[in-house]
Computed example of a mutant assay.
Amino acid sequence: MSRKRSERQQAWDKFGLPKAGAEALTRYNQEVRPFRKLCGARTKSTEDHRPCQNLALAGHDRCRVHGGATPKGDQWNLTQWPNGKAPDAEAKLQAKLKRIERDRKAKAKRLAAMSPEERQRYDQRAKTHAPGPAAERARRRDDRKRAAEIRASLEKPDDKPASAELAELQRQAAALEEARDHYRRLAEQANQDQGVFG
């Protein structure tokens, strides 16, 4: 026994919209979809781990399910705010703020539960793995590498005694490095203290 179709369904049938929609979908699947990039992830549910068949999001290598919507590049560590022009922007903003506060409390709880040794390792890693643009992180890595090379060369025993001029230059270089590190720490603290709305 067939169910009675609603007035809306009858109107769709009357104007041939189901047929037009099916034709448009068929045309898309034949002419457009084969040329779109597929997600590069592999399934876990099958033994042969076939590639995911979803379409990758624009500008990404993954579909929405496998992380394609995750920010990347210089924006990976920044909070992604909802579109302010959307009709439900206020509700989305409130939900985002609640989620940020919940995550902040969870992080504080995790840090409070750490032993002093774990907290020291965490703080040390936070200093060397600060978020930011890739170019800035590469520059910091190069600075650390150069500083280590300079320290190693200065610690090498030298056959010739250091001149007073060289000793003065080394003292000035150490003072400049200390001042540079101090101002970098101040800049990082200023960036962290900007608050939710940056």
Rank of each mutant, 00 (worst) to 15 (best):
K37V: 05
K105H: 12
G59K: 06
L25V: 09
S163F: 02
W81F: 15
A148H: 01
Y122N: 11
L57Q: 14
L25T: 12
R139Q: 14
E155T: 06
A179P: 01
G132S: 05
L78W: 02
G16D: 01
R99C: 02
D88S: 07
A138K: 08
K96D: 02
Q124L: 12
A106V: 02
R8Q: 14
Q10H: 01
S45F: 06
A112T: 04
S2P: 12
R62N: 11
R99T: 13
A108C: 04
A41Y: 06
K4I: 08
F35R: 13
E118G: 04
K72E: 12
L17A: 08
Q194G: 15
A112S: 07
Q172E: 13
K105G: 01
G198I: 07
A91M: 06
D74Y: 00
K19Y: 05
Q80A: 13
R180K: 10
K107R: 12
R121D: 12
F35D: 11
C39D: 00
A95L: 08
S45H: 07
K72W: 07
K98N: 13
N83H: 05
A147F: 02
G195M: 04
T26A: 15
A135C: 00
R110Y: 04
G73C: 09
L38V: 10
G132Y: 01
A22L: 10
A22G: 03
G84A: 15
Q120P: 00
A86K: 02
R119S: 11
A134Q: 12
F35S: 08
D74F: 00
A174C: 00
K4T: 09
W12D: 14
A187P: 01
L38K: 14
Q9A: 12
A179T: 07
H129D: 14
A11S: 10
Q10I: 05
R184N: 09
P131Q: 06
G40T: 08
A58M: 06
V65M: 09
R125T: 11
A106G: 07
P34A: 01
R146T: 10
L57S: 02
Y183T: 11
H60R: 15
R144T: 04
R99H: 13
F197D: 06
K145V: 11
A95D: 14
R50H: 05
S45D: 08
K127D: 11
Q94C: 04
P157F: 06
P82R: 00
H129C: 05
Q30N: 11
I100E: 12
D61T: 05
A135F: 02
L166W: 10
M114F: 04
P82L: 08
Y183Q: 13
R140H: 09
K4P: 00
A41S: 14
R180E: 10
A164E: 14
L169D: 10
Q194R: 15
E178Y: 03
Q170V: 10
E47Q: 08
D74H: 02
E168L: 09
R119G: 02
I150D: 08
L38C: 07
Q80I: 14
V32H: 06
D143T: 10
M114L: 15
H66F: 05
T46A: 10
K127I: 09
A58D: 10
R104A: 14
L93Q: 10
P34Q: 03
V32N: 05
A95E: 15
W12C: 03
Q75Y: 04
E47T: 09
A147V: 03
D142F: 01
D142Q: 15
G198Q: 12
R151F: 04
R27D: 12
R141C: 00
A164T: 11
Q9W: 02
Y122V: 08
R121W: 03
K105F: 09
K44A: 13
P157Q: 06
C52A: 10
